[in-house]
Design a binder for these strands. Structure first.
Lengths: 185, 185
DNA sequence: GAAGTTTCGATACCCAAGGTTTTGAAACCT
DNA sequence: AGGTTTCAAAACCTTGGGTATCGAAACTTC
């Protein structure tokens, strides 16, 4: 049982700066927008070296994805009925995308992924798949229906964000829920 | 009335190369993706100089928007009922986004616009507004409802395109129509 | 305490791509 | 012929993602 708690690996341990980097990433994206939130600026905002960021995240895209994973956390799948579960999930992701920097970062990394199959794979497997699986389980729907649901909800929220620069207002989120729910009876 | 038909401006007239540039833009984007479809490569594909492109379009974003305007053309608002009009419009834009290069170009310029308020303005006023006004007129819906409709339809189609790299299949476009129509009675 | 290993900060660097500038020639007008 | 605009070609600038190097710091084990 010597490896049940694997010994700390040799060498200098990493300092616990991930949270600081995530916070600086979101605030920098919020202030300057996605494209002008360069890795150099994010590093400067945290006070650490750019090389340290690239040692932990191989690309800017993976940094943003990890940052979003940290910002989102697990889906709260609350509610007694399927309708309540879907409704709360939609409002939850709408609220998250409305948080400062989150929507910009999401839309930005999403757009980078369009021309970058590697990043698309990261986005799909690390960010989308966990939520897709949780929703499949909670709603008892087949994969392609959940993928369609995610396309509709996230696509709509990001399109509004990208077109106006502002997150979707609550009235329109209500409309989104009202439109989606009947389709998934 | 000497200026009713304004005289041709002095100097060497522009050669009619816009169509060639648009075609080369779409094919280059289709082959290499949006980010790798550089202005230099597009120019090389047409055989004209990069400076000629920048003389006609101030930025890559405006070139792409003009290219999309040319590729889309006017919305066909056919059908006797509101349902038929909406259905045909949704299938029309889905088909256009599925054409080679169009979806990539659309998603790419859209994502650039996230961090670029100037490009966002161009995208909104030159590309979205004409279709929004035509739909408002044809469907008799207020502006915010049409904006919501565009967010849902275009957002969903682009999210699928960005996440998978492939346009949405017909079955899912059918589902999109089926979901949207009842909401707009 | 010394050797080995890994992280850190700093700096310099490479490369791609958007965009500008310059120059000389060509095409059109009056 | 002179004025004006467009064109192609080339050099150039800047930004930003990502890499390479180096010495110092922080741990481990022997």
């Amino acid at each position: 049982m010597t490896s049940s708690t694997p010994a700390r690996p040799p060498g200098r341990p990493r300092s616990g700066i991930n949270d600081v980097v995530f916070a600086a990433t979101l605030s920098t994206v919020h202030e300057l927008g996605y494209a002008r939130a360069t890795v150099e600026r994010i590093a400067a905002a945290t006070g650490i070296a750019k090389t340290t960021i690239y040692r932990r995240w191989p690309t800017k895209g993976t940094l943003i994805v990890d940052c979003l994973l940290d910002a989102f956390g697990p889906v709260p799948l609350e509610g007694d009925s399927r309708a309540e579960i879907m409704s709360s999930a939609i409002r939850w992701i709408a609220g998250k995308i409305g948080e400062p920097g989150v929507g910009d970062a999401f839309a930005g990394v999403f757009s980078d992924a369009v021309s970058d199959p590697g990043l698309r794979e990261v986005l799909s497997s690390r960010l989308q798949d966990p939520y897709r699986l949780a929703l499949q389980d909670a709603l008892g729907e087949p994969e392609h229906r959940i993928l369609f649901l995610i396309d509709v909800v996230v696509g709509t929220l990001l399109h509004r964000m990208g077109m106006t620069g502002e997150p979707m207002v609550d009235d329109d989120v209500d409309a989104l829920v009202e439109m989606v729910l009947p389709f998934f009876h």
